[in-house]
Design a protein around this nucleic acid. Structure first.
Length: 306
DNA sequence: CTGACGTCCTGACAGC
DNA sequence: TGCTGTCAGGACGTCA
């Protein structure tokens, strides 16, 4: 369930340690965690060992570490993935899937442990190519380099996230307003906008007072803009609340916390009163996952007859 | 192009 | 106590 804010916390925690780090070793304990890796290009470990990492970059929920070979180590946390920064020798749980041995010129030796209970996430080495729109491919914090405008091939189809300065509001709103799909399906479609998962989709829809099945093409420009604004606010708020742990400590200790559960308005709140109107929050099945909403605040709106 | 659905996966937990 | 079934959902593939 890591979504953009959680992945950003991980990225920020990795940034100082992986930047300029030398990869001295790779251990793969669970080959299924390499599901996104294309073996034809070479073995996972062989493509990483002996390389230097240049940065930690993120677009939406995808994270990648550009290498001095021109490739990138791509990471997706899936449902349960954690990237944990450890001192060498650290005893990890049985869910450890991949371990990287790093040597940093300033910080010394580290283990980067990829832990993933359900193996929905994974790592891969991928080639990079210029981003289609020519802008900086993802968010890399304070670090910059030639790789700025390059994106791993398996991430290229993912849209920018709403907090990306190069996010194209007009294109998103136009596409949102041209689909018959429900707005929640659109928010979860990473080709349209990235970084949003089930939790923040439900929270943003509640804030915008929209029903999850409201067809995109029934939204006015104003309502579409409102939804985008609320998405940004929800993400930014979560980012700010996770920001207290914006350091290596977070990754060191626990890559999983920080769902700002104390400030969820609807997600997982079924049976409880809506914080806005007091109506009981409902949970329904949608797209094989739970959708939480207030039946009073978030009614399906009939489009004005044309 | 669209949407509905299946697939991957395992720990936690409810129920018997 | 110990088993079985159910649930959680991000990304992607398939099919109508």
């Amino acid at each position: 369930m890591p979504e953009l804010p959680e992945v950003e916390v991980v990225r920020a925690g990795l940034e100082p340690v992986v930047t300029d780090a030398f990869v001295s070793g790779v251990e793969v304990f669970e080959p299924r965690s390499l599901k996104r890796h294309v073996p034809a290009r070479g073995g996972f470990a062989a493509l990483i060992e002996g390389r230097r990492m240049l940065a930690a970059v993120r677009r939406g929920k995808f994270l990648w570490l550009p290498l001095d070979s021109g490739d990138a180590l791509v990471t997706h946390l899936g449902m349960s993935g954690q990237v944990l920064l450890r001192a060498p020798g650290h005893e990890e749980s049985g869910l450890l899937r991949i371990r990287l041995h790093l040597e940093h010129p300033d910080h010394g030796e580290y283990w980067v442990n990829f832990v993933d209970q359900r193996i929905f996430g994974g790592m891969a080495v991928d080639a990079m190519a210029p981003a289609a729109d020519g802008f900086t491919a993802g968010y890399a914090g304070a670090v910059h380099g030639d790789w700025d405008v390059l994106i791993p091939s398996q991430v290229a189809h993912i849209a920018r996230d709403p907090l990306d300065p190069a996010f194209d509001d007009a294109t998103f709103i136009a596409r949102l307003r041209s689909t018959r799909s429900g707005v929640k399906r659109a928010l979860l479609d990473q080709r349209l906008v990235s970084g949003i998962g089930n939790i923040y989709a439900d929270e943003a829809l509640w804030a915008a007072k929209m029903h999850y099945e409201q067809p995109g093409n029934t939204l006015s420009v104003r309502r579409a803009r409102l939804l985008l604004t609320e998405v940004r606010q929800v993400l930014a708020k979560a980012l700010a609340e996770g920001g207290t742990s914006f350091d290596a400590q977070y990754v060191n200790v626990n890559g999983a916390s920080g769902y700002f559960s104390h400030s969820l308005n609807v997600y997982g709140q079924q049976g409880k009163p809506c914080p806005r109107c007091g109506t009981t929050i409902v949970r329904e099945q949608f797209m094989n996952r739970g959708s939480h909403f207030c039946p009073h605040c978030q009614k399906l709106r009939r489009p004005r007859s044309a």
